[in-house]
Amino acid sequence: MTGVKGMLGAVVTAPLVALARVLEVPLRLWQRLTGQGGMVAFFLLPNMAIFTLFVLLPLVINIAYSMTTGAALFLPERTYVGAAQYERLLRCTDYTNLMTCQEDQFWIALRNTGTFVVLQVTLLIVAATITALILNRALRALSFWRAVFFFPVLLSPVVVGLIWRWILDRNGVLNAALVGMGMDPVNWLLERNYAFSAAIGVTIWAHLGFFALILLAGLQAIPRDLYEAAEMDGTKPARVFWRITLPLLMPNMLVVIVLALIRAVQVFDEAYVLTGGGPGTATLFLTQYIYEVGFASLLKNPGLAAAASILMGGVLIVLTLLQLALGKRNERKGRLK
C-alpha cells in the first residue's frame, strides 16, 4: 500500500521537483525585480492563459459564432446572418408534427433527449437511493460492496459502450440466455424501443455507483442517535424512512438530482458507441446532433451547431444555477446547526 503510494507519488512529483529546482535561481531574481506582485503574476499566468484561451474565449465567441454561416472556421471570415441559425433550428410549419420542422433532426434529438432525461434520471435516482440505503445498513465488507457499484464509474464510455454492444449483440449472451429460457431472441440494438431502453439501462449501469456514493455519504452523516431515539419512540421502519431519513437526506438528494440532470442532458459517448444514434434516429441525442452538424456530416454547418449548443448551454446554466443555489442553502443550513 505505502509502496504503491510512494511509487506513484515519486513518479508524479520527480519531474516537477526537477523543474522546481531549475527555476529556483531565475525566479529569485524575478522576485527581486518585480516583488511579490510579479510572483503572483508568474503563478497565475500559465493556468490563466490556457483557461482564457481554451475555456473563456470559446465561451464568449460561441454566441458570435452562432450568428454566422458558411464553412469557414475563423470567425472574421464568416458571414453574419443574425438569428437565422436559431430560426432554422426552431421553425416548424406544424409544431405537432416534428417532420414539418426545418431541422427535424434537431427536434428529434430534442425529443429523444427530453424523454431520456426524464426516464433515466428517475430510474437512476431510485436505484441509487435503494443502493445507498442498502449499503448504509452497517454491512460487513462495505468497501467490497461499494467497489461493486462504483467499479463501472471509472470505465471509459467507449469501453462501456463496447461491453454492452457485445452483450446485446444479436448473437450475444443475453439472447443466448433468453433462448435458453425458451424465449425468442431480440434484436436489442436494432429495434427502436429496445435500443432506447438499452441506452437508458447502460448509462444507469455506468453512473449508478457515483450517485449511490454521494447519497451514501449523506446517509452516513445522519447521526445514529436519531435512529435510536426513533427506536425508543417505537417508530415503524416506513415512518422512520419518510419522516427522518428522507428529510435529512434531502440536501444531498437535491444535489444528486441536479447533477444527474446536467449529465443526462449531455448524454453522448456511451450511447454513441452503443447505438451510433440508431436505429434510424431512435437514439439521436442533442450532443450527437451538435457533433454531427458541426464536424461529422458532409454538409458541415458550424454556425448551426453553435446555435444548438447555446440552446443546450442555456438549459445547463439554469440547472447549474439551481445547483449553486441549493449548495448555498445547504451551507446556510449547515451553519445554523
Binding site: 442517535d225 436519531l226 431515539a229 425508543m232 428529510p247 435529512l248
Partner: peptide, 13 residues
C-alpha cells in the same frame, strides 16, 4: 422507557 441521549438526538428538521 424513555432515553435522553448524550448528543440529545433531536430531529434537526
Amino acid at each position: 422507557l424513555a432515553m435522553v441521549f448524550q448528543s440529545y438526538a433531536l430531529y434537526p428538521h
